[in-house]
Design a protein around this nucleic acid. Structure first.
Lengths: 145, 145, 145, 145
DNA sequence: TTTT
DNA sequence: TTTT
C-alpha cells in the first residue's frame, strides 16, 4: 500500500542555486536552505539552524535558478529522498535531500527584484510547481451544488 | 504577494462520491469526509467529529468516483475555498470546501475492492493527483553531485 | 479510528486581531487572513484571494494580539472547525474557521516592530504554540462572535 | 528570522521501535518507516520505497514503544534534523532523521491489538503529541545509536 | 526493514 | 453522514 512523504519548509537560501544540465537536456538545480528555530534555554535565547539540501528538476530548476538567490525567503514543498553515492575515496555515503515539488517566494516583492532598479517580470509565478505536477487550476467557476 | 493555502486530511467518507457532469464536459465529484479526534474530558473518552466538504475536479473526480466509497479511509491534500450561493429561498449563504489536489487511499487493499471476489485493477494509482497538477516524476536517476 | 485535520496557511492579516475575554478568563482572538494565488488565464495574470477566519485561544490569543497586526505575513498551522450560530434574525448559519495551533511570524523583523523606533522584545517567540494543543481542546463552546 | 521545518509521513514501520533510556532518565525510541510510491514507467507499475529514520523522545517514545510494532501504518508529523556521529572506524558521518512531534495510528483497530484476544486499552490516545513540543527541544545532544 |  |  502507498504512503505519504511530504516536507514543508520555510527558510532562507544559504547560496545561489547551482544549476547543472544532464545528458539528455534535463536541468537540475540545488541549494542549501536554512530553517531556524529559536527557543529559550535556561532563560537564554538560543537559535538552532537546520540545513536542508534542496534539489529541483527540469522546469522547477529553471525557474529557481532565475528567481531564487542566496538569502531569499522561500516556502518549499517536496519529498524526502535518501540516495547513496561514492565520495572521492570510493567510500559509500548517504545524503538525504528534499526533492522540491513546488515553491513560493515569500517576503517583499523587492526581495525578488534582480537589481534595485529592475522590477519583477510579469511572468514570475508566485507559486511554481514541478512541470510534472504543474498547471492552472481554473475551477474558479461556481459549483452547481 | 502570494501565499500558501493547504489542507491535509485523513478521514473516512461519510457517503459515496456524488458525481456531476457540467456543461462543457467537466466532471465534478463531492463527498463529506469525517475526521475524528478523541480526547479525555474529566477522565472520560470523548470523540469529536469534524465534517469536511470535499470537492474534486475533472480526472480526480473520475478516479474518486471509481475507487472511493462510503466508509473508506483516505488521505486528501487540497486547498480551502469559501464560495457563496443562493439557497431555495434566495438567501445568500456561504460554504467552505476543500478542493482536492490529490488523494491517496489508505487502509487495507481489501478495503478498496469492489466486491469480496474482485481485486483492484492493476491500474489503481495509490497517489492520484489533479490532472492539472499531475504526472510521473521520473527523476529517480542518480544525481550528478 | 482517528484522523488528521490539518491546515497550513501563509498569508497576510486583513485586520488587527480582535480580542475577547470570556467568562472564566479565557482569551480568544480572531482575525481574517488572506492567501492569494496568482495564475494565468488566457495569457492574463489573475489574482485570486481566499479569506480565512482564524481563531486563537488562551496564550496563543494573547501572543497574537501582541505581535500580529493588519498586513503582517504569518505562517499558521491549525485545524478546521465548522460551527453553527444564529444570526440577528435567528437564522441558523455555519462558519468554517481555522483554529490555530501554532504560528510563526514571517517577513522582516522590522515588520513586527511595534513602532518605527521600538525593536521586537527579546521574548518574541518565533514559533508560538497553543499551550493546550497537547491535551483536550475544550473550545467547543460557541464562540462569542 | 525563524522558519518552518515540517515533515508529514504516512507509512509502515519496518521494525519494532527500539527503546533506550539515557542517563537522566530520558527515553528515546527509534524505528525505520517506509513510505512507498507507485508510478507507471513505460506502462509498467514500479514501486519505489523510501526509508525514514524516525526518532521519538520522552513520553512520545514511551507511547510509541507500547503501541507501534513492525508493519503498522502510522501518520507521523515531525521535523528534519541532520546530525553527525563517528562510526566504528572513527569516520565522521551524517544521518538525517525525522524527530517526531506527534503521531496517529491508522488502519484497523485490530491492527493495534497486542494479541488477537487483547483489546487496545481505553486510554490509547489516537493522536499523541510530544509533551515537550511546546517548549525547548533540548534533544540536540548526540543520540546513542 | 514495511506494505500492496 | 464515517470510523473506532
Amino acid at each position: 500500500m502507498s504512503g505519504i512523504n511530504k516536507v514543508i519548509l520555510v527558510g532562507h537560501l544559504g547560496k545561489d542555486p547551482e544549476v547543472r544540465h544532464l545528458d539528455g537536456g534535463v536541468t537540475v538545480a540545488s541549494f542549501p536552505l536554512a530553517t531556524s528555530e529559536t527557543y529559550n534555554k535556561d532563560g537564554k535565547r538560543v537559535e538552532q539552524t537546520e540545513w536542508h539540501n534542496i534539489v529541483l528538476w527540469r522546469g522547477l530548476a529553471e525557474v529557481a535558478s532565475k528567481y531564487l538567490q542566496k538569502g531569499k525567503l522561500v516556502y518549499i514543498e517536496g519529498k524526502l529522498r535518501t540516495r547513496s553515492f561514492e565520495d572521492k575515496e570510493k567510500v559509500k555515503k548517504y545524503v538525504t535531500e528534499i526533492v522540491a515539488e513546488n515553491f513560493t517566494m515569500l517576503g517583499r516583492k523587492s526581495d525578488f527584484e534582480q537589481t534595485p532598479a529592475a522590477s519583477v517580470p510579469q511572468s514570475t509565478e508566485p507559486k511554481i510547481q514541478d512541470e510534472f505536477t504543474i498547471g492552472p487550476s481554473d475551477e474558479n467557476g461556481d459549483l452547481p451544488f
